[in-house]
Lab assay of single mutants.
Amino acid sequence: SDEEKKVRDQAKRLGVNTEQLLKWARRQGDEDLVRIVERLLRS
């Protein structure tokens, strides 16, 4: 999905993997991002 591509691009920009991005999203309190990243991790 578009959202998932955006998440992957953001992880690349930050230089982190998906698990690290999830931690980062939780720290930001970004519920939408957390949900998308969790979906990516499960897929």
Rank of each mutant, 00 (worst) to 15 (best):
L41I: 11
A25G: 00
R39S: 05
K12P: 02
L14M: 06
R26M: 10
A11H: 09
S43T: 11
L41V: 04
L21N: 00
D32V: 12
Q10M: 15
V37R: 00
K6N: 06
N17Q: 04
R27K: 13
E4A: 08
V37F: 04
N17M: 14
I36K: 04
R39G: 05
E3L: 14
L14V: 03
V7H: 06
E38W: 02
W24C: 15
S43W: 12
K23E: 15
R35M: 04
L21H: 00
D2W: 11
R8W: 12
V37S: 00
D32E: 12
V7T: 04
L41Y: 01
R42A: 11
R35K: 10
Q10T: 12
R26G: 03
V37H: 00
R26Y: 09
A25D: 00
D32G: 05
L14E: 02
L33V: 02
Q28S: 10
R39P: 00
E19M: 07
R42W: 08
L21R: 00
V16N: 05
T18I: 15
K23T: 04
D9M: 10
R39C: 15
K12W: 03
Q28D: 02
S43R: 10
A25E: 01
A11G: 05
V7Y: 04
R8H: 06
K23F: 07
V37K: 00
K5L: 06
E19S: 05
V37Y: 02
E4S: 10
E38N: 02
S43P: 09
W24N: 12
E31N: 08
G15C: 15
G15H: 09
G29E: 02
L14D: 02
L41R: 01
V16H: 08
V16F: 14
L21W: 06
R35H: 02
K5V: 05
A25M: 08
G15N: 05
D30I: 15
G29M: 12
E3S: 13
D32P: 02
N17A: 09
E3Q: 09
E19R: 06
D30K: 11
L40S: 01
L40F: 10
L14S: 03
E19D: 09
R42N: 06
K6Q: 08
E4F: 11
D30G: 13
K5E: 06
Q28E: 04
D2C: 15
S1K: 11
R27P: 01
K12G: 03
R26D: 13
E38L: 09
V37W: 01
L21Y: 02
E19F: 05
L22I: 03
V34T: 02
E3P: 11
R42K: 10
S43E: 12
G29T: 11
R26I: 12
Q10F: 14
L21P: 00
D32S: 08
R42Q: 11
W24Y: 03
K23V: 10
R42V: 08
V7I: 10
E3C: 15
K5T: 05
K6H: 06
D2M: 12
E3R: 13
R35D: 02
R13C: 15
L33T: 01
G15K: 10
D32C: 14
L14C: 15
Q28W: 14
L14F: 06
R13V: 04
K23P: 00
E31D: 10
K6Y: 13
L40C: 12
D32M: 13
Q28M: 13
L33F: 03
V16W: 15
E3D: 13
E38Y: 02
E38M: 03
L40D: 00
E31Q: 10
V37L: 14
R35Q: 05
D32F: 14
A25T: 01
D30T: 10
V7K: 07
S43I: 12
S43G: 09
D9L: 11
W24D: 14
A25V: 07
D9S: 06
L41A: 02
Q10K: 07
N17F: 14
L21E: 00
E3V: 12
K6E: 07
E3W: 14
A11E: 06
L21V: 01
T18P: 12
L41S: 01
D32Y: 13
E31W: 14
R27S: 15
L22N: 00
E4M: 12
W24P: 12
D2R: 11
D2E: 11
G15L: 09
R39A: 11
W24F: 02
V16L: 14
R8P: 08
N17R: 06
L22H: 01
R39D: 08
A25W: 08
D9N: 10
S1N: 08
V16P: 03
Q20K: 08
V16K: 06
D9R: 06
K12D: 04
K12S: 05
V34M: 06
L21S: 00
W24R: 06
V16Q: 03
V16M: 14
V16C: 15
L21K: 00
R39E: 07
V37E: 00
V34W: 03
R42H: 08
L22E: 01
R35V: 04
S1T: 11
K6C: 15
D30C: 15
V34Y: 05
E38G: 01
R35G: 03
G15P: 03
Q20A: 12
D2S: 10
V37D: 00
R35I: 03
A11K: 10
G29I: 14
S43A: 10
K23M: 11
E31S: 13
R13K: 06
K5D: 05
L33W: 03
D32A: 12
R27G: 14
A11L: 13
L14I: 04
N17D: 09
D2I: 09
D30L: 15
L40M: 09
Q10Y: 13
R26E: 15
K5G: 04
K5M: 07
G15F: 11
I36R: 05
K6L: 11
V7S: 07
L14A: 04
Q20V: 07
L22W: 03
E19Y: 08
R13N: 03
R27Y: 09
E38V: 04
K12L: 07
E4G: 06
L14H: 05
D32T: 09
R42D: 09
E31K: 12
L41T: 01
Q10S: 06
L40V: 05
